[in-house]
Amino acid sequence: MKQSFIHKLANFSFMIPYLTLFFVFLIGPLIFGLGLSFFRWEMLSPAPPKFIGLGNYQEALIDPYARKALWATARYVVMAVPVKISIALLLAVLINTLTDSHQNFYRAAFFMPAMITISVGGILWRWFYNNEFGLFNTYLSKFFGIKIPWITDPDWAMKSIVFMTMWWSIGGAVIILMAGLKQIPKRYYEAASIDGASEFEQFINITLPLLKPILLLVVVLNIIGAFQVFGQTFMITRGGPEYSTRVMVHYIYDTAFHYYRMGYGSAMSWILFIIIAIFSTLQFRLSRGKKQNA
């Protein structure tokens, strides 16, 4: 009995470093942040933090800038995720038909932009998008006589951010999807070919169903990631024009570190967290439900 206790202690000691960090930097801050969200705390004010219940959450509902930020984030998620996943899937399927050595080469080429840190990517694309001497407009006006207000028009700016993100981050999705494709046994396709199924039919009837678990994972990861977008908008548009690209995380950052409203910032963090949680559980539920039906 005693020995087993010592054993357990020894076993438990493996957990200690992780547990410490887990509670200090994850669970603790999570709870602290939740608590903070019920307080009015202006960091630069001599006034002590004041408990205001759901006041911050109520404010977030009527704050026009919070709404704008939520709208900007929603626009980003709705545009970026489906476009990215479908292009990545198309690329993965197409690349998968090539020879192995070529596959490796192209995979690396598509992933390479992801290695570039966002500030460099942002600087680069800010230049591409520049109205006067940007790469795109220079050639557009040379060959087609048009100019696109990439990042100076509120209607265009978010699309341009999404476009840049495709370049920057599609590689990871392509790689994971290709790995998924590799796991589908070849004989399924062979059997389908013998039955006379076209390549498109094969894609619909074999590839998609068998790829579904991984596809779903990629979708969930990308939705979670898309809700947290920050670097691109911060570097390329600074949230403008007319705050059309100031997304939630950007607004939380501004609220906390430019307007110094810590309680309000925490409340908005939690709102974002809840939105993300709803989406990811929904996704998992959906997949599980489908699996049981199948």
């Binding site: 200090v24 930097f25 994850l26 603790g28 801050p29 999570l30 602290f32 942040g33 903070l36 979670i224 809700f227 947290q228 920050f230 995380v249 939380i252 950052y253 906390a256 810590m262 910032g265 925490s266 963090s269 939690w270 974002l272 967290f273 993300i276």
Partner: peptide, 13 residues
């Protein structure tokens, strides 16, 4: 839990 949600509380930690 997205890391950026923890920005403010981790800052104070």
């Amino acid at each position: 839990v997205p890391g950026q949600i923890l920005l403010i509380p981790v800052y104070f930690t």
